[in-house]
Design a binder for these strands. Structure first.
Lengths: 214, 214
DNA sequence: GACGAACTACCTTTCAGTCGGTAGGCAACC
DNA sequence: GGTTGCCTACCGACTGAAAGGTAGTTCGTC
């Protein structure tokens, strides 16, 4: 029965990491954000590392549930990949990066348990996509020349990279451009003048938004 | 006439950012790394932000030179993309992420001038790749259904993402898997049993390497 | 009365940045 | 040819703020 405060801490800490990075936020920031004293955070998470590990775990579990739901909701391989990509798109619209990506960039100062958690996150996603693609390839949903294991890696990389980049550049529109290219690399037919999916070239303009550090 | 010390500062600061992130290193770290006193760094870069901006500028210029060299060295569109990807591959083998990617993850605490520099870096690369792909498509080197602007975004995203991820996971082998998938998305012919390029599925195993923080 | 969850008060270390000063180089001027 | 003045490069010593973390206490609830 996880306490209400603990959940609030996790939720807000996640936002902080996803917008500023792991080294870029402090217990003081977090305390102020949820209206509690700094010392009280230590009651729930004795060290920042404990909090970091809990964050990766919670984030990973949430994604695991999402992947299961995607598989349940659609049997079509391409739609599954599309739904998977939509998870990242949400990050763009909410102006929040990927938690594990943020941690991965600080690899050099990342405590081992967090490092392991981050690696496992990526591995699970690659494995899942590999399975989805293999299935889709078997029943002809995606091109035969797609190597599931390779393409899975490429898709995760492209989505992580696009989320990272498009928060600064074209926003959702830019992200969808990457998605459109990704779609073409999977789809069976050399496309007839398909009407689905948007095509507009993104404005590619830095959208500045002030976000003062208190 | 940029002093020797200034160059050393830039070189070492770059390494620190690329392994720990921008918020993850301090003037003290940097001072110790090049054997100088902390106060002396302020002589060359009055504030950390000044250093950050200089880093992005130097990094960007180095890449600009590399792009020009790639264009000079080969006229083949696919080979150009391949050479571009090799730049990222070096990051993997040297266990260093991308400087601007590291900065982009800390968007929420990034001073505006740095943010602008990072955005411009990505924009230049996308523009360059768009041009290269458009040319390649025109002379039949890459598939006709490739939309240069979209594919360019996807390529940068995939390479940034792969560099981020594969430092933790499969290393160079994992990176090359993504590359192989990328290649297939561009190449003209539904591939005959091509012998080029490696195919091995990467071990996908976290390679831990201790890197104590002094 | 034991326990969970929060608090006040404090600790040490590190952070970016400041200050005044030193040592050497270089050129002008008398 | 010595002195004066200014420059770059660096230093030791320092500052106030912020970092992560600790100790001991209070308060409400089973």
């Amino acid at each position: 029965m996880p306490s209400d405060t603990r959940d609030k801490l996790l939720a807000h800490a996640e936002i902080l990491v996803r917008t500023r990075g792991y080294a870029g936020f402090s217990y003081a920031d977090l305390a102020e954000a949820i209206g509690i004293r700094k010392a009280s955070i230590h009651h729930h998470f004795p060290t920042k590392e404990d909090l970091g590990v809990a964050l990766v775990e919670a984030y990973g579990r949430r994604y695991d549930r999402a992947l299961a739901e995607i598989e349940r909701a659609s049997a079509d391989g391409l739609k599954r990949v599309e739904a998977y990509a939509a998870l990242y798109l949400h990050g763009v619209t909410e102006e929040q990066g990927c938690l594990v990506a943020a941690m991965a960039t600080e690899l050099g100062i990342l405590p081992e348990p967090m490092r392991r958690g981050v690696a496992e996150f990526f591995e699970r996603h690659i494995a899942w996509l590999t399975r989805v693609l293999a299935e889709a390839r078997a029943n002809g949903t995606v091109r035969k020349d797609v190597t599931p294991a390779h393409h899975a890696r490429m898709i995760v990389a492209a989505l992580e990279g696009a989320l990272l980049m498009e928060r600064l550049l074209g926003g959702a529109a830019g992200f969808r451009d990457t998605l459109s290219a990704l779609r073409k690399s999977l789809r069976q037919t050399p496309p007839s003048p398909l009407p689905s999916g948007r095509t507009r070239t993104a404005p590619t303009q830095a959208r500045r938004r002030e976000r003062a550090r208190s």
